[in-house]
Simulated assay, not measured.
Amino acid sequence: MDMLMPVLFALGAAFGNALATVLQRKAALGVPRSDKLRAGLMLDLLRRPVWLAGIITMITAAVCQAVALATGPLTVVQPLFVLELPLALAIATVLLRGRLSRTGWAAAFAVVAGLAVALTAASPEGNLTHVPMDRWIPALVVCAGAIVALVLAALRRSEGRTRAACFGLATAVAYAVTAALMKASMHTLADGGLTAFLTAWQTYGFALFGAAALFLLENAMQAGPLVASQPAITLGDASVSLALGITVYSESVRTGWWLLPQLLGVALIVAGVLMLSRLPIARSLTGGDRSTGNAGVP
C-alpha cells in the first residue's frame, strides 16, 4: 500500500505528459504553415483552446510527478515514464485519427509487460528524505560532465542518428537529475514549508536542469530520426534515474537470480520502444510528419 500513491501519481504524470504531447501536436497541425516569426506562431497557438488544454495538462502532469517523487522511491517513479510513448501513440490514434498496426500494439504491450516484469523483479525499496552534500556533489559533477561530453560529441557529428542519440542521452541525464533534485525539493516543501522550498538550492537546481533538458530535447528532435533520439531519451532517463536512486537516495533493488527477470523486462522494454519509435504515427507527434491525414500506420 505504501507504493500505491507514488505509482498512481507517476502513472497520472505519464498519462498527462502523453496527452499534452498529442494536444499540442493537434494544435500545431491546425496552424497554417508560413514563414512567420516564432512570436506569430505563439499568438496563433494561444488562440487555440486545444493548445491551452495541452499546457494545462502538462502542468498537471508536473504536479503529479512532484507528488509521486515526494512519496515514493526514484527507482519506482521514473521508470514508469517509459509508458509515455505507448500512451501518446494510443491517445494519438483517437485525437489525431491515426491508426496503430498490430505491430504497434504488440510493441506497446511489450513495453508495458517489460516494465511490469522488471519492476516486480527489482522490487525497489527505500525513500530517503534528506541527502547529504557529500552524495550530491559527486553525482552532480558526474552527470553534468556526462551532459557536456554528450553535447560536445553531438556537435562534432553532422545531422543523423549519432548526433540525435547523443543529444537524446544528454536530455535523458538532464531529466533524471531534474527528477532527483525535484524529489529533494518536495521533501523540503513538506518538512519546512514554502519558505524552505524557495530557499533550498535543490529547487533552483531542478529548474536549471529542467530548462536544460527542454533545450536539449529540441536539439535531439531536430538532429536526426526519432528512432535514434527517442529510445535514448526514454531508456536513458530510466537508467540514470535508477543509478541516482541507488547512489544518492540509498534505494535498493533485488539482486541474485532476480537479475534474470529484470534483464528480460528491460529487453522487452528496449525492443518495444525501438519498434514504436519507427512507426509513422510516432514521427507525426514530433513534427516528422506535417500532414494530418497520414499520421496513421498503413
Rank of each mutant, 00 (worst) to 15 (best):
M1P: 12
D2Q: 15
M5P: 01
P6A: 00
P6H: 01
F9N: 03
F9K: 01
A10W: 05
L11G: 02
F15D: 00
G16I: 02
L19K: 03
A20K: 14
A20V: 06
K26V: 00
A28Q: 13
A28V: 09
V31A: 09
R38M: 11
L43M: 13
D44E: 15
D44H: 13
L45N: 07
R47F: 06
V50H: 10
V50M: 10
L52N: 12
A53C: 12
A62R: 14
V63E: 02
V63Y: 12
Q65A: 12
A66R: 07
A68W: 10
A70H: 12
T71Y: 11
T71K: 15
G72F: 13
V76S: 11
V76N: 11
F81S: 11
F81D: 07
E84I: 15
L85K: 04
L87S: 14
I91P: 03
G98S: 02
L100Y: 08
S101F: 04
T103P: 00
A107E: 06
A108E: 05
A108N: 04
F109Q: 05
A110H: 03
A110C: 07
V111Y: 12
L115S: 07
L119K: 06
L119R: 07
T120D: 02
A121V: 05
G126T: 03
V131N: 09
P132G: 02
D134I: 10
P138E: 09
A139T: 08
V141A: 14
V141H: 06
A144R: 01
G145Y: 06
A149K: 06
L150P: 00
L150F: 12
L152H: 05
R157D: 07
E159Q: 09
G160F: 05
T162C: 02
A164K: 08
A164Q: 02
A165I: 04
F167Y: 15
G168H: 11
L169Y: 11
A176I: 10
V177Q: 04
A180N: 08
A180D: 04
L181W: 04
K183S: 11
A184F: 04
A190P: 07
D191W: 06
G192R: 11
G192W: 05
G193R: 08
A196E: 15
Y204W: 15
A207C: 14
F209G: 05
A211Y: 11
L214P: 00
F215E: 03
N219A: 09
A220N: 06
M221T: 10
Q222Y: 04
A223S: 14
P225E: 01
P225Y: 03
P231V: 02
I233P: 03
T234N: 13
T234K: 04
A238M: 15
S241C: 09
A243R: 05
L244C: 04
V248P: 09
V248H: 09
Y249E: 07
V253D: 00
G256Q: 02
L259E: 01
P261E: 04
Q262G: 07
L263E: 04
L264I: 15
G265Y: 08
V266R: 13
I269G: 03
G272R: 12
G272T: 13
S277R: 07
P280M: 09
P280C: 10
I281S: 13
I281D: 01
R283W: 05
R290P: 03
S291P: 01
T292C: 10
G293D: 13
V297N: 14
